[in-house]
Amino acid sequence: MLNLSGISKTFNQGTPNEKKALTGLSLHLKPGDFATIVGSNGAGKSTLFNAIAGSFYVDSGRIELGGKDITFAPEYRRASQIGRLFQDPLKGTAPHMTIEENMSLAYLRTTKGKTGFFSRIGKKDRAFFQEQLSQLEMGLENRMGQPVGLLSGGQRQALTLLMATMVPPQLLLLDEHTAALDPATAEKVLEITKQVVAKHQITTLMVTHNMHQALDLGNRTLMMDAGHIVFDVQGEERDSLTVEDLLQKFHQGAGKELDNDRILLS
Protein backbone atom coordinates (compact mmCIF):
# COMPACT_ATOMS: atom_id res chain seq x y z
CA MET A 1 0.00 0.00 0.00
CA LEU A 2 2.56 2.55 1.18
CA ASN A 3 6.03 2.26 -0.32
CA LEU A 4 8.88 4.51 0.79
CA SER A 5 12.20 3.88 -0.91
CA GLY A 6 15.32 5.62 0.37
CA ILE A 7 13.74 8.94 1.30
CA SER A 8 16.08 11.62 2.69
CA LYS A 9 15.51 15.14 3.92
CA THR A 10 18.03 17.65 5.25
CA PHE A 11 16.90 20.94 6.74
CA ASN A 12 19.05 24.11 6.58
CA GLN A 13 21.54 22.41 4.30
CA GLY A 14 24.98 24.03 4.26
CA THR A 15 24.42 26.10 7.41
CA PRO A 16 25.64 25.47 10.97
CA ASN A 17 22.07 24.45 11.82
CA GLU A 18 22.08 21.64 9.28
CA LYS A 19 19.82 18.82 10.42
CA LYS A 20 19.66 15.49 8.65
CA ALA A 21 16.07 14.61 9.55
CA LEU A 22 15.57 11.57 7.29
CA THR A 23 18.51 9.48 6.08
CA GLY A 24 17.60 7.00 3.37
CA LEU A 25 14.48 5.64 5.07
CA SER A 26 12.71 2.73 3.37
CA LEU A 27 9.44 1.19 4.46
CA HIS A 28 6.82 -1.00 2.90
CA LEU A 29 3.35 -1.32 4.40
CA LYS A 30 0.95 -4.01 3.19
CA PRO A 31 -2.76 -3.16 2.87
CA GLY A 32 -4.35 -3.33 6.31
CA ASP A 33 -1.04 -3.04 8.19
CA PHE A 34 -1.28 -1.16 11.49
CA ALA A 35 2.26 -0.16 12.52
CA THR A 36 3.26 1.70 15.67
CA ILE A 37 6.41 3.85 15.68
CA VAL A 38 8.61 4.62 18.69
CA GLY A 39 11.92 6.47 18.78
CA SER A 40 14.14 8.98 20.56
CA ASN A 41 13.59 12.71 20.59
CA GLY A 42 14.35 14.09 17.15
CA ALA A 43 14.52 10.63 15.56
CA GLY A 44 12.46 11.94 12.64
CA LYS A 45 9.04 10.47 13.44
CA SER A 46 7.08 13.65 12.79
CA THR A 47 9.33 14.50 9.83
CA LEU A 48 8.47 11.11 8.36
CA PHE A 49 4.74 11.91 8.69
CA ASN A 50 5.24 15.36 7.17
CA ALA A 51 7.10 13.78 4.26
CA ILE A 52 4.33 11.25 3.64
CA ALA A 53 1.58 13.87 3.97
CA GLY A 54 3.47 16.29 1.73
CA SER A 55 4.15 19.23 4.09
CA PHE A 56 7.46 19.39 2.19
CA TYR A 57 9.04 17.48 -0.69
CA VAL A 58 11.85 14.99 0.10
CA ASP A 59 15.40 15.66 -1.19
CA SER A 60 15.75 12.17 -2.63
CA GLY A 61 13.86 8.89 -2.74
CA ARG A 62 10.38 7.89 -3.84
CA ILE A 63 6.99 7.83 -2.10
CA GLU A 64 4.25 5.59 -3.50
CA LEU A 65 0.74 5.23 -2.17
CA GLY A 66 -1.65 2.64 -3.59
CA GLY A 67 0.71 2.07 -6.54
CA LYS A 68 0.82 5.78 -7.45
CA ASP A 69 3.97 7.88 -7.27
CA ILE A 70 3.08 10.83 -5.01
CA THR A 71 6.66 12.06 -4.36
CA PHE A 72 5.86 15.50 -5.80
CA ALA A 73 2.09 15.66 -5.32
CA PRO A 74 1.07 18.77 -3.34
CA GLU A 75 -0.19 18.30 0.21
CA TYR A 76 -3.84 19.06 -0.50
CA ARG A 77 -3.91 16.48 -3.34
CA ARG A 78 -2.51 13.72 -1.14
CA ALA A 79 -4.96 14.60 1.62
CA SER A 80 -7.86 13.02 -0.28
CA GLN A 81 -6.16 9.63 0.26
CA ILE A 82 -4.45 10.29 3.59
CA GLY A 83 -6.23 10.95 6.88
CA ARG A 84 -4.11 12.65 9.52
CA LEU A 85 -4.48 13.36 13.24
CA PHE A 86 -2.13 15.64 15.16
CA GLN A 87 -1.21 15.70 18.81
CA ASP A 88 -2.93 19.08 19.13
CA PRO A 89 -6.70 18.40 19.17
CA LEU A 90 -7.35 21.96 17.92
CA LYS A 91 -5.64 21.35 14.59
CA GLY A 92 -8.14 19.02 12.98
CA THR A 93 -11.40 20.98 13.18
CA ALA A 94 -12.64 24.49 12.43
CA PRO A 95 -13.69 25.98 15.82
CA HIS A 96 -16.23 28.56 14.63
CA MET A 97 -18.11 26.14 12.41
CA THR A 98 -20.71 23.75 13.75
CA ILE A 99 -20.18 20.01 14.19
CA GLU A 100 -22.45 19.41 11.23
CA GLU A 101 -20.56 21.88 9.02
CA ASN A 102 -17.22 20.33 9.96
CA MET A 103 -18.53 16.89 9.09
CA SER A 104 -20.04 18.15 5.85
CA LEU A 105 -16.67 19.49 4.85
CA ALA A 106 -14.95 16.18 5.54
CA TYR A 107 -17.71 14.26 3.81
CA LEU A 108 -17.97 16.47 0.75
CA ARG A 109 -14.22 16.49 0.15
CA THR A 110 -13.95 12.72 0.13
CA THR A 111 -16.83 12.45 -2.32
CA LYS A 112 -15.14 15.01 -4.59
CA GLY A 113 -15.65 14.32 -8.25
CA LYS A 114 -19.03 12.74 -7.60
CA THR A 115 -20.38 16.03 -6.28
CA GLY A 116 -20.00 19.56 -7.69
CA PHE A 117 -18.67 22.70 -6.06
CA PHE A 118 -22.18 23.78 -5.18
CA SER A 119 -23.37 20.54 -3.66
CA ARG A 120 -24.98 20.84 -0.25
CA ILE A 121 -25.79 18.57 2.63
CA GLY A 122 -29.17 16.89 2.44
CA LYS A 123 -31.43 15.15 4.94
CA LYS A 124 -29.97 11.74 4.18
CA ASP A 125 -26.42 12.96 4.79
CA ARG A 126 -27.48 14.56 8.07
CA ALA A 127 -28.97 11.28 9.27
CA PHE A 128 -25.72 9.55 8.28
CA PHE A 129 -23.67 12.05 10.32
CA GLN A 130 -25.95 11.59 13.29
CA GLU A 131 -25.58 7.83 13.14
CA GLN A 132 -21.78 8.13 12.85
CA LEU A 133 -21.61 10.55 15.80
CA SER A 134 -23.73 8.29 17.98
CA GLN A 135 -21.08 5.58 17.61
CA LEU A 136 -18.70 7.80 19.60
CA GLU A 137 -21.11 7.58 22.56
CA MET A 138 -20.27 11.13 23.59
CA GLY A 139 -23.73 12.61 23.06
CA LEU A 140 -22.45 14.68 20.15
CA GLU A 141 -25.30 13.54 17.91
CA ASN A 142 -27.61 15.90 19.82
CA ARG A 143 -25.26 18.87 19.53
CA MET A 144 -24.76 19.01 15.76
CA GLY A 145 -25.66 22.71 15.55
CA GLN A 146 -23.07 23.81 18.10
CA PRO A 147 -19.69 25.28 17.15
CA VAL A 148 -16.84 22.80 17.53
CA GLY A 149 -14.95 25.34 19.67
CA LEU A 150 -17.28 24.45 22.56
CA LEU A 151 -16.20 20.79 22.65
CA SER A 152 -13.50 19.41 24.94
CA GLY A 153 -10.12 18.33 23.54
CA GLY A 154 -11.08 14.66 23.69
CA GLN A 155 -14.39 15.25 21.93
CA ARG A 156 -12.65 17.29 19.25
CA GLN A 157 -10.05 14.58 18.72
CA ALA A 158 -12.74 11.90 18.48
CA LEU A 159 -14.62 14.07 15.99
CA THR A 160 -11.45 14.61 13.94
CA LEU A 161 -10.90 10.85 13.89
CA LEU A 162 -14.45 10.33 12.72
CA MET A 163 -14.05 12.99 10.03
CA ALA A 164 -10.78 11.46 8.82
CA THR A 165 -12.25 7.97 8.54
CA MET A 166 -15.92 8.59 7.68
CA VAL A 167 -15.00 7.70 4.13
CA PRO A 168 -12.02 5.37 4.77
CA PRO A 169 -8.71 6.82 3.49
CA GLN A 170 -5.98 4.65 1.98
CA LEU A 171 -3.63 5.61 4.77
CA LEU A 172 -4.18 6.94 8.28
CA LEU A 173 -1.39 8.86 10.04
CA LEU A 174 -1.77 9.19 13.82
CA ASP A 175 0.84 11.52 15.32
CA GLU A 176 0.55 10.87 19.09
CA HIS A 177 -3.09 11.76 18.76
CA THR A 178 -3.91 10.85 22.37
CA ALA A 179 -0.86 12.45 24.04
CA ALA A 180 -2.56 15.74 24.89
CA LEU A 181 -5.67 14.13 26.42
CA ASP A 182 -6.33 13.08 30.00
CA PRO A 183 -5.84 9.32 30.63
CA ALA A 184 -9.53 8.35 30.59
CA THR A 185 -10.28 10.30 27.43
CA ALA A 186 -7.08 9.04 25.80
CA GLU A 187 -8.22 5.47 26.50
CA LYS A 188 -11.59 6.19 24.94
CA VAL A 189 -10.14 7.81 21.81
CA LEU A 190 -7.71 4.91 21.48
CA GLU A 191 -10.58 2.44 21.75
CA ILE A 192 -12.45 4.27 18.99
CA THR A 193 -9.26 4.28 16.91
CA LYS A 194 -8.93 0.50 17.25
CA GLN A 195 -12.55 -0.06 16.28
CA VAL A 196 -12.48 2.24 13.27
CA VAL A 197 -9.19 0.90 11.92
CA ALA A 198 -10.32 -2.71 12.36
CA LYS A 199 -13.73 -2.08 10.84
CA HIS A 200 -12.45 -0.53 7.61
CA GLN A 201 -9.08 -2.36 7.51
CA ILE A 202 -7.29 0.99 7.11
CA THR A 203 -3.52 0.93 6.63
CA THR A 204 -2.28 2.92 9.62
CA LEU A 205 0.93 4.43 11.00
CA MET A 206 0.87 5.60 14.62
CA VAL A 207 3.53 7.42 16.62
CA THR A 208 3.42 6.73 20.35
CA HIS A 209 5.54 7.25 23.44
CA ASN A 210 3.87 4.47 25.33
CA MET A 211 5.95 1.29 24.96
CA HIS A 212 3.04 -0.97 25.89
CA GLN A 213 0.86 0.62 23.25
CA ALA A 214 3.70 0.15 20.79
CA LEU A 215 3.56 -3.59 21.33
CA ASP A 216 -0.17 -4.09 21.99
CA LEU A 217 -1.68 -2.05 19.20
CA GLY A 218 -1.62 -3.12 15.58
CA ASN A 219 0.43 -5.88 13.98
CA ARG A 220 3.85 -4.29 13.55
CA THR A 221 6.29 -2.16 15.56
CA LEU A 222 8.92 0.16 14.09
CA MET A 223 11.73 1.89 15.99
CA MET A 224 13.35 4.98 14.55
CA ASP A 225 16.66 6.67 15.24
CA ALA A 226 18.65 9.34 13.40
CA GLY A 227 16.25 9.49 10.48
CA HIS A 228 15.85 5.83 9.64
CA ILE A 229 14.26 2.64 10.93
CA VAL A 230 16.57 0.68 13.24
CA PHE A 231 14.21 -2.11 14.23
CA ASP A 232 11.13 -3.55 12.55
CA VAL A 233 9.22 -6.43 14.08
CA GLN A 234 5.94 -8.21 13.33
CA GLY A 235 4.19 -11.57 13.63
CA GLU A 236 5.12 -14.16 16.22
CA GLU A 237 8.39 -12.52 17.13
CA ARG A 238 6.49 -9.38 18.10
CA ASP A 239 3.92 -11.28 20.16
CA SER A 240 6.64 -12.69 22.40
CA LEU A 241 8.42 -9.34 22.95
CA THR A 242 8.32 -7.50 26.28
CA VAL A 243 9.04 -3.83 26.85
CA GLU A 244 12.52 -4.74 28.15
CA ASP A 245 13.22 -6.75 24.98
CA LEU A 246 12.13 -3.80 22.92
CA LEU A 247 14.55 -1.44 24.68
CA GLN A 248 17.29 -4.05 24.23
CA LYS A 249 16.52 -4.29 20.51
CA PHE A 250 16.73 -0.54 20.21
CA HIS A 251 20.15 -0.58 21.83
CA GLN A 252 21.33 -3.20 19.33
CA GLY A 253 19.92 -1.34 16.34
CA ALA A 254 20.90 2.20 17.21
CA GLY A 255 24.04 1.52 19.25
CA LYS A 256 22.78 3.63 22.15
CA GLU A 257 20.06 3.76 24.80
CA LEU A 258 16.59 4.93 23.84
CA ASP A 259 16.71 8.57 24.81
CA ASN A 260 13.25 10.04 25.13
CA ASP A 261 12.16 12.23 28.01
CA ARG A 262 8.50 11.51 27.38
CA ILE A 263 8.69 7.76 27.14
CA LEU A 264 6.15 5.75 29.14
CA LEU A 265 7.45 2.35 30.17
CA SER A 266 4.43 1.23 32.12
Binding site: A79, G92, N102
Partner: peptide
Protein backbone atom coordinates in the same frame (compact mmCIF):
# COMPACT_ATOMS: atom_id res chain seq x y z
CA UNK B 1 -15.15 29.43 5.70
CA UNK B 2 -12.83 26.69 7.00
CA UNK B 3 -9.86 28.40 5.28
CA UNK B 4 -10.35 31.47 7.46
CA UNK B 5 -11.03 29.38 10.56
CA UNK B 6 -8.29 26.74 10.52
CA UNK B 7 -5.95 26.66 7.56
CA UNK B 8 -4.12 23.55 8.87
CA UNK B 9 -7.33 21.61 8.78
CA UNK B 10 -8.09 22.82 5.29
CA UNK B 11 -4.73 21.67 3.96
CA UNK B 12 -5.23 18.28 5.63
CA UNK B 13 -8.71 18.05 4.07
CA UNK B 14 -7.58 18.04 0.44
Amino acid sequence: RATGDNVDMVRASS
